[in-house]
Design a protein around this nucleic acid. Structure first.
Length: 559
RNA sequence: UGGGCCGUCGACAAGCGGUAAGUCACAUGGUUUUGGUCCAUGCAUUCGGGGGUUCGAAUCCUCCCGGCCCAACCA
């Protein structure tokens, strides 16, 4: 227990511990996840969600889901549904606290009027271009807007007219009146409202002015009684402004705390790149199993638990970092090793004829469902004269460390018998098409009574009893660790792994897998973890490879 | 360059003045009817660099070096 708390230690929890000790917020802890519904969630969002949710949980607090829908031209209902679905799946529970920024538009308007009345906000009628020019640069101060000293009465009047739709887009904005010479660019009279005659997916045509992020976000947090507003590092410079608005209004002020977002190597995570892949049909959709989207990972076979564990392992800090993809792979293997039933499937079949086995006979072999879970029990697997093994499990001229089947060599067929290869049958092109082997009837179950040892145990499947399936093998999306600093003229699309998806047909599966439901996960022994894809039917099963098993032999081969 | 933030093993990351946790990766050995799992062992005499304070510094001070963010009517 103590160890677990220690492993979770991070600077945000330190801050909260201190707040609690000092009696801040009456001991309340309340966090939130505030996505803009303008795209799909990915593994990076999972960190934001889980960091907020787990803190709320561990401190007996509350966690809200809030859509930050303040920009109607970028947002859509389609995204809110997808996001809700993904977060539910991930396991974060907002109970009955699902909110929308748009629910607060009336209150935000009233607060803006309040700010105008105390002379802290004004209507600016400069063009976007003029505003940009007058903002100055990071090294030189900006200059005041010529409209900065309008009377409160005039500001009130203009702002109301903005709301009433009397002006065209871009003609006026509402601005906070702070300091055009501030070294913090965000404090140079920040925009609070812009005119946008656009249909909003929730408020329809009720509004034609929409609040900007900095004005809206703190208010949303404040209105919901959020105590700790956790966000990513790039909002650090926004904090003084977040505080300024709430202090001027004299309302509850949550504490904004920033942490580093998650980066993963060998993939892409930016909204722009993901969108490009989807729109240019370089992947099949947002849930393409090659993508790091939550829907993609789900379809790939990841469990929510694996992602939760992964985020836990990654930790929370302020230093920019890139997490190794191998850690994600480890997280899913760890879960599936304990839970996934084992099954024997042959992906790249090579026929084996057991010459001394009776023609037309078949027998049932007992096979263990999951050696990690005694309760998983056993099943019967048919064995017969004609079998398939993996092509890679036979070599006519094996190198030193190859332990598997070869001419004259004896191996174990898992749970079945010791098998010896006697003859290699080839077609006219010299291609190996069949192996003739003999079995040792005394070795039934895979043990030889004389104590004879074999160096390899192979998986196999009875040819007559197997069903055919399509198997989709997935690998990392990108061939280089980082696509953010590429050589000139190169884009991330030049580094898409052509082998990120490999489709295999006529793979041989145990017959009962025809009935497996979409999403069913299992281990194909010695190959990896697989799950049933959405495209699967009983007539044509389709499985996705979630991740391979760790493979020492593959490593040796690379050397 | 003005402002803000960050730099601890190949990758994450604890550490909060008392002498460098843990995880992944990697390596070696053992167990094994999955070259899986599991187990054991190894993997930072040193914390971006220099100087200082101190009996004692990754932790405090100071200077330097390197990286990231901010000049959308995006969030």
């Amino acid at each position: 227990m103590e160890e677990k708390i220690r492993s979770k230690s991070n600077f945000i929890r330190d801050i909260i511990d201190k707040d609690l000790l000092e009696g801040k917020n009456n001991g309340r802890v309340h966090t939130r996840f505030p996505p803009e519904p303008n795209g799909h969630l990915h593994i990076g969002h999972a960190k934001a969600i889980l960091v907020n949710y787990s803190i709320a949980q561990d401190y007996n607090g509350k966690f809200n889901l809030r859509f930050d829908d303040t920009n109607p031209i970028k947002e859509d209902e389609e995204y809110v549904n997808a996001i809700i679905n993904d977060i539910k799946w991930l396991g974060a529970d907002w109970e009955n606290r699902l909110f929308y920024a748009s629910d607060y538009f009336d209150e935000m308007y009233d607060y803006a009027v309040q700010l105008i009345k105390v002379g802290k906000a004004f209507v600016d009628s400069q063009s976007a271009e003029e505003i940009r020019r007058n903002r100055g640069t990071v090294t030189s101060p900006g200059v005041n807007s010529p409209f900065r000293d309008r009377s409160i009465k005039e500001n009130l009047d203009l702002f109301e007219k903005m709301k009433n739709g009397e002006f065209k887009d871009g003609t006026h904005v509402l601005r906070g009146k702070i300091d055009m010479a501030s070294p913090n660019m965000l404090m140079r009279d920040p925009l609070m409202y812009r005119i946008r005659h656009a249909f909003h997916h929730r408020t329809g045509n009720k509004w034609c002015i929409y609040p900007m992020y900095d004005w809206a976000h703190g208010l949303e947090d404040s209105l919901e009684g959020i105590t700790h507003s956790l966000c990513s590092l790039e909002f650090q410079a926004h904090r003084p402004l977040y505080d300024w608005f709430l202090l001027e209004l004299g309302v509850h002020k949550p504490q904004q705390i920033e942490f580093a977002r998650l980066n993963l190597n060998y993939t892409v995570m930016s909204k722009r790149k993901l969108l490009e892949l989807v729109e240019e049909n370089l992947v099949s959709g947002w849930d393409d199993p090659r993508l790091p989207t939550l829907s993609g990972l789900r379809r790939r076979g990841f469990t929510a638990e694996a992602i939760q564990n992964f985020i836990q392992k990654v930790g929370v800090a302020k230093a920019h970092s890139v997490v190794d993809y191998a850690l994600l792979e480890h997280s899913i293997r760890e879960v599936l090793n304990k839970t996934a039933p084992r099954v024997m499937s042959v992906l790249n079949p090579l026929k084996v004829v057991i010459t001394n086995y009776p023609e037309g006979q078949a027998e049932e072999i007992d096979a263990v469902n999951n050696p990690e879970d005694p309760d998983a029990g056993t099943r019967k697997v048919p064995f017969s004269k004609e079998l398939y093994i993996e092509r890679e499990d036979f070599m006519e001229d094996p190198p030193k460390k190859f332990f598997r089947l070869a001419p004259g060599r004896e191996v174990r067929f898992r749970y079945a018998y010791f098998i010896t290869c006697n003859e290699v049958i080839k077609d006219e092109n010299g291609e190996i098409i069949e192996l003739h082997c003999t079995y040792d009837p005394a070795s039934k179950g895979g043990k030889s009574p004389d104590g004879r040892k074999v160096k390899a145990t192979l998986h196999w499947i009875s040819a007559a009893h197997a069903i055919d399936a399509e198997i989709r093998l997935y690998d990392r999306l990108i061939t280089v660790p980082d696509t953010n600093n590429l050589k000139e003229g190169k884009t991330f699309k030049d580094f898409i792994n052509p082998n990120a998806l490999k489709i295999l047909q006529n793979c041989k599966l145990e017959a009962h897998l025809a009935e497996a439901e979409v999403g069913f996960r299992c281990q194909f022994e010695r190959l990896g973890y697989f799950c049933v894809d959405n495209d699967s039917t009983a007539q044509k099963p389709v499985f996705n490879r979630t991740v391979t098993l760790r493979d020492v032999w593959a490593k040796l081969q690379k050397k």
